[in-house]
């Protein structure tokens, strides 16, 4: 097991490197640059700026300088657009915010989603089941970029209960709406996966055997059915956790949380190369780590899987 984890972590290094190189080349292949604007800079001004950021060097030298900076000094470079900030600053400020509401959303989505799925499966083909299925379908059909403005219209404008955006150091009033908007569709997916998996397990042979043995219903569900029924959910949770703590562009956009998600999109549009690369490395590393964690949990849940 330990060997397996080490191996996976070691392969992560070339994976990240390839990711950085591809991302770097794609960014530079896109037309325009960080200093292209409606008002083109005079050539000598542009030359000074490019010299300052090393953009006048050949591409491979820029890539090399960047990699050396990251590996030796853990320095992800400066932002070309927000000139008072380095990429390290931007991530250090934005990531904790995203991590906070992402983790809360993840916990909420998992607990509520799993509970709803299990409950619906146990009450299969009753009104409880129909209600749960109906709710999950509507929740999935309502994307967060529709939900976010609606939440603000209701809770901020009409009711005046919650602030319409901001973060304020993460006070709970500021966290509620981002969490609702972010967790809903994940919650719905989890509930649907959980319900299907649970139904399948409940109809399997070993559960029938357990019932024939006369085991109490709660033992059957919690001791025997639950673990295998969680498997599909777990494989879904790994990537979705990463998506929740990083891919929250919409949340950052609508709720002005100051999270790191918005930088991802803005950096690409602004050709803010270093920010783009920094955020990509962060996402890549997180994806690798959480896929690994999902695989480890998988092994624990399924005795048939051994690494």
């Amino acid at each position: 097991m330990l060997n397996y984890i080490l191996r996976r972590l070691l392969t992560a290094i070339p994976t990240l490197l390839v990711l950085v190189i591809i991302c770097f080349l794609m960014m530079h292949a896109a037309p325009g640059g960080p200093f292209t604007s409606e008002r083109p800079l005079p050539p000598e001004v542009l030359a000074n700026i490019e010299a300052k950021y090393g953009l006048n060097k050949p591409l491979y030298a820029q890539l090399w300088d960047y990699l050396v900076g990251v590996v030796t000094r853990f320095d992800f470079g400066p932002s070309f657009i927000y000139k008072d900030r380095s990429v390290n600053d931007i991530i250090a400020q934005g990531f904790p915010v995203t991590l906070t509401y992402g983790t809360i959303s993840f916990v909420v989505a998992t607990i509520v989603g799993v509970a709803m799925g299990v409950f619906a499966a146990l009450r299969h083909n009753t009104w409880v089941d129909y209600l749960a299925v109906g709710a999950t379908f509507s929740a999935q059909a309502l994307p967060n970029f529709v939900m976010a403005p609606i939440l603000v219209i209701i809770f901020t404008w009409q009711l005046g209960w919650l602030p319409g955006g901001g973060w304020n150091g993460g006070q709970w009033q500021y966290v509620v709406m981002p969490v609702i908007a972010l967790s809903t569709s994940y919650m719905a997916s989890i509930a649907r996966i959980q319900r299907t998996a649970m139904l399948e397990v409940l109809h399997s042979n070993f559960v029938r055997t357990a019932r024939a043995k006369g085991l109490p219903n709660s033992t059957i569900i919690w001791r025997h059915a639950m673990k295998p029924a969680l498997m599909p959910v777990v494989s879904y949770l790994g990537p979705s956790f990463v998506a929740m703590i990083t891919g929250s562009v919409v949340i950052d956009l609508y709720f002005s949380t100051g999270g790191v998600g918005l930088h991802y999109v803005n950096a690409a549009l602004n050709r803010d190369y270093a920010v783009m690369l920094g955020v990509t490395i962060l996402y890549g590393a997180l994806t690798i780590i959480f896929n690994l964690i999902a695989d480890i949990v998988y092994a624990w849940l399924d005795p048939k899987i051994r690494y």
């Binding site: 403005p149 603000v152 219209i153 901020t156 404008w157 005046g160 319409g164 955006g165 956009l253 002005s256």
Partner: peptide, 16 residues
């Protein structure tokens, strides 16, 4: 306050 979505800013203006 930084609000990147202008419609959202309008709703929040209306909310005071």
């Amino acid at each position: 306050l930084v609000v990147t979505d202008q419609n959202q800013a309008l709703t929040r203006y209306l909310a005071g």
